[in-house]
Nucleic acid binder design. Structure first.
Lengths: 207, 207
DNA sequence: TCGTGTGAAGACGTTCACAGCT
DNA sequence: AGCTGTGAACGTCTTCACACGA
């Protein structure tokens, strides 16, 4: 983010989308795709797609389009998806334990290596089969296992406190599902997903 | 969105945040707040907050600040949160059934009135206690119950098909948790939450 | 001719800075 | 004096339009 030639955040989101679309094309044995076609699949303007892709270099052939496999691999490279990235999850309540059972992360190169909860027994009943520890053991775990990403699913009132501990323990990125506004040092990256806000937003725009 | 004096999407998200912050202030018995203080709590620039709030009219008093209760109620009004908004959910798998148990929606004025799944028996085992129907009954239900918002949690490959059916059945806004890019008529609003993309994004920005 | 890569234009969003009300 | 409301400056993102390579 602070880097000089970092790709803008919005572009990174779109690159993820392009990557998924390319994978589908590759699965169908398609070898080449034009910016127009790929843009339509990704729901964006074709010239935006071309601009986005040139952040990665020049992968297209004029008059032809982009080589599906090559471009997909360039995207994986840019998104640092080549190897499995370990992640921890804090707060294995309803939402947290659902995310633990969710397969979508693994598919995109992330592995939840441990989960922490104030009441691991209750979480275990929810059918979690990821190593599950008492919340206090978080720091010890992180000392022995260098994980950089955390998924935060604790209730809003505890979110800031847990975030502080995560940052002190060396976590560099937090995916925050609580509706709290987290204050963290500027080198730490936070992405927040607020489910209620998303509904409020929809609710506003349906006239 | 298409309206002439619709408030921009980004502003609506921030208004949700301001509303939550105001509620906390109100709970603590605080009656007046300045743009600077509220902006800090919401993690934004104070002049942005003032601009955002003037979309709702002029609620502040120069030299004093904003009346907490009054402003909160103006926000609820703008966000159409005054009354309970019914919502349906399609796809009660891991994520879907977790959302059904999630309390955060109710708190912000939404009620999931029914859920639909291809295999309701399996979903029922996950401890859902919202009326749960076979997916095919969706259209009949919507005919009798005029719901405008749907939460879509089906696997990516079924998302477009289900979205088409929702739109035909009169749904106006879709909160899409699948990683698919949905094509819908332009008067339909779609908000997508792609959990894997969020992690990819973090992964990119932690250097 | 087809489709990429890209400067330039345009739309949009944010921040500044200050006039004006209390 | 303190703080809002707001034009104007600034910055960022998107789209246009076309030169250029295959």
């Amino acid at each position: 983010m602070s880097e000089k030639n970092a790709i803008p955040k919005k572009v990174i989101y779109r690159l993820s989308t392009y990557h998924r679309c390319l994978q589908r094309l590759a699965d169908n044995g398609i070898e080449t795709v034009s910016s127009g076609t790929l843009a339509k699949a990704a729901g964006v303007n074709s010239s935006q797609l071309r601009k986005d892709i040139t952040y990665l270099g020049q992968w297209g052939t004029r008059g032809l389009g982009y080589p599906v496999e090559t471009l997909a691999s360039a995207l994986r490279d840019a998104l640092r998806q080549e190897k499995l990235q370990p992640v921890i999850l804090v707060g294995a309540g309803n939402l947290g334990s659902a995310l633990l059972r969710y397969q979508g992360f693994q598919k995109e190169g992330f592995e939840v290596v441990a989960a922490f909860d104030a009441d691991p027994a209750a979480a275990r009943k929810r059918g979690v089969n990821v190593p599950l520890f008492l919340e206090e053991e978080m720091e010890t775990f992180l000392l022995e296992n260098p994980v950089r990403l955390a998924i935060l699913c604790v209730p809003a009132e505890f979110a800031q406190g847990v975030a502080n501990r995560l940052v002190r323990a060396g976590i560099q990125g937090i995916l925050n599902f609580s509706p709290a506004v987290l204050e963290v040092p500027k080198e730490i990256v936070v992405n927040s997903v607020d489910l209620a806000s998303e509904l409020e937003n929809l609710s506003y725009f349906i006239r």
